[in-house]
Design a protein around this nucleic acid. Sequence first.
DNA 1: CTCGGTTTGTTCTCGCGTTCACAAACTCCT
DNA 2: AGGAGTTTGTGAACGCGAGAACAAACCGAG
Lengths: 235, 235
Amino acid sequence: MTERTPSEASRDIPEATVARLPVYLRALTGLSEAGTATCSSEDLATAAGVNSAKLRKDLSYLGSYGTRGVGYDVEYLRYQIAREIGVTQDWPVVIVGIGNLGHALANFSGFRSRGFRVVALLDADPRRHQEVVAGVDVRPFSDLEAIVHEHGVAIGVISTPAPAAQDVADHMVAAGIRSILNFAPTVLAVPPGVDVRKVDLSIELQILAYHEQRKALGAAGVAAASEGALEGRPA
Amino acid sequence: MTERTPSEASRDIPEATVARLPVYLRALTGLSEAGTATCSSEDLATAAGVNSAKLRKDLSYLGSYGTRGVGYDVEYLRYQIAREIGVTQDWPVVIVGIGNLGHALANFSGFRSRGFRVVALLDADPRRHQEVVAGVDVRPFSDLEAIVHEHGVAIGVISTPAPAAQDVADHMVAAGIRSILNFAPTVLAVPPGVDVRKVDLSIELQILAYHEQRKALGAAGVAAASEGALEGRPA
DNA sequence: CTCGGTTTGTTCTCGCGTTCACAAACTCCT
DNA sequence: AGGAGTTTGTGAACGCGAGAACAAACCGAG
């Protein structure tokens, strides 16, 4: 996207690899909790649900943290990946839109345990300002800028209804937030330099529906037309 | 993945295109509600947040539904995409795990309006069996197979804690479900022929954190080292 | 010290997805 | 009717990611 200066550390890591690093991190945490001190790329790959060649290639972008003939030290690799992702320190996060989904997000324990700290919950509806969710009180949306500056918030989560999302995003960007996780089913327009990641429940379901329909049509087609490829499907 | 018989309709559509079709569908719905009868690929592309070349190529996999020199009929294209995805009919869906996230999913209106119908909410915890969420009463997890057969459920949603997810998935597969949307932060193992899509909140945040860290390091690196590439970033 | 076994890190090849660029086709105006 | 202006659909080039295969490096036994 933008040119990077390959200054010292942190060479260019492919986007596809970046998206898998958190998966490896979680798998390593699981191995660590199970008492494993060392693991091979094969072990870690199966725990992460990828094949070992891809895993080794991904890790090679970070550096040579393994030992040939032995494998990887679980704790050491875990720390290196966490450092590369940037979750060795805590990231302050604000959540805007405390409806059903906002409640769920605020109560989600996975944030806290994985390097994120919810410092504020915001909602435009005054009726929600009396609520306290997960130990944090809901404050007016107009407090956004003050909170961002006070806590140095760099990441914002949008869980509002779709019509409000663009406005919320604009205010977030104006307040200095440069990374947005958007749960509202809308395409957000943001200036360059701001990252947006979208999580869209109905889109995921529709993708499943497409494949489901294909399976149904494929079965019917195989039955109706000539013999096709069979899928082995255990009970 | 598996061989398909290119029997009659529904040629092979690339996975990347399939993932974008729901976005186009939503953009078309927006245009339709705004009273637009016809749109160019440029219009639809900006509404969907992609460039027009990609949009046209994507649509070309479905067929030639546009008119050169004119554009696309919004309603017609909308129906064609909906038919291709398979959301012209309703898909019955079960949600397992009615915690915070399960509540939010059950109440999410976007499912209903986009071709999905929540036919059952299941939870292993007997204390939740008295609840009624979004007009549907929570039933024991052991009812899964009966419900799947009764309603012909093909899509299951898992919103349980991570340790329970694999067991739930196993029961879903055993009951005949072949498409799973997994919100639990775990890698699911399923037999071939079963599609799993994963939505992982903390992974998304970690990806944002990585880029955020890069931005911070990049700015510091540019300041410390020699002059690098500047990013134009409006206020 | 040497040799066999094991596992990483890397190179190479292949296929998919994105983007560009342009011909084909349609409308509208004269 | 004809030509200018638009817009679609697609062929071709290009870059990225996945997977296979192998050389380099490490451990341990004898």
